[in-house]
């Protein structure tokens, strides 16, 4: 067993875990944050994407013990209380989800795209940047629209502009 301490969604957690515990298992089974999903064994589907120190990573391919001292954000930590994150709101508004299974990973990946590429994203960029996230339901059409709109809405002052 190895001790690990990290911040998850703003709260500090310390646990004694079997070193083979993956970050995905850690948040799902130890912290019961089941919004992070597991959809494959080969690190390709992206259902498990969370942010570690502000960067999108596949929690199924990260040891929990490697995240000692890190700040982890999962889908449960994205909304500000009852107020949805703009990317979450965009997925609902643009029907970017059907069964919802890929959705947490999609949203976490989408926020990461905006963090890296800015608020104005074209379709081509969005499609390429979503390479590591598989959705079987939507055909991506509405996910692309949602990410584009969500990116705009994340711009500072976007809410104010939208409200005008």
């Amino acid at each position: 067993m190895t001790t690990v301490t990290m911040t998850v969604n703003g709260k500090s957690v310390t646990a004694n875990v079997d070193p083979r515990t993956l970050l995905a298992q850690f948040v799902r089974e130890h912290l019961r944050l089941t919004g992070t999903h597991v959809g494959c064994d080969t690190s390709q589907c992206g259902a498990c994407v969370v942010h570690v120190d502000g960067r999108a990573v596949k929690s199924c391919t990260t040891l929990a013990v490697s995240c000692d001292g890190a700040a982890v954000t999962t889908i449960e930590g994205l909304a500000n209380g009852a107020e949805l994150h703009p990317m979450q709101a965009a997925f609902r508004e643009h029907h970017g989800l059907q069964c919802g299974f890929c959705t947490p990973g999609m949203i976490m990946a989408a926020v990461d795209i905006v963090n890296r590429k800015g608020h104005v994203l074209d379709e081509h960029t969005i499609r390429e940047e979503l390479e590591g996230n598989i959705c079987r339901c939507t055909g991506y059409h509405n996910i692309v629209k949602a990410v584009e709109a969500g990116a705009r809405a994340m711009a500072p002052g976007a809410a104010a502009i939208a409200a005008e």
């Binding site: 944050l33 089941t34 919004g35 992070t36 999903h37 999962t74 889908i75 449960e76 994205l78 909304a79 949805l84 979450q88 997925f91 609902r92 989800l97 919802g100 299974f101 959705t103 947490p104 949203i107």
Partner: peptide
């Protein structure tokens, strides 16, 4: 959608 986009779906 609300439960799915906030990670509160129950699979």
């Amino acid at each position: 959608d609300f439960r799915f986009i906030t990670g509160q779906g129950r699979y």
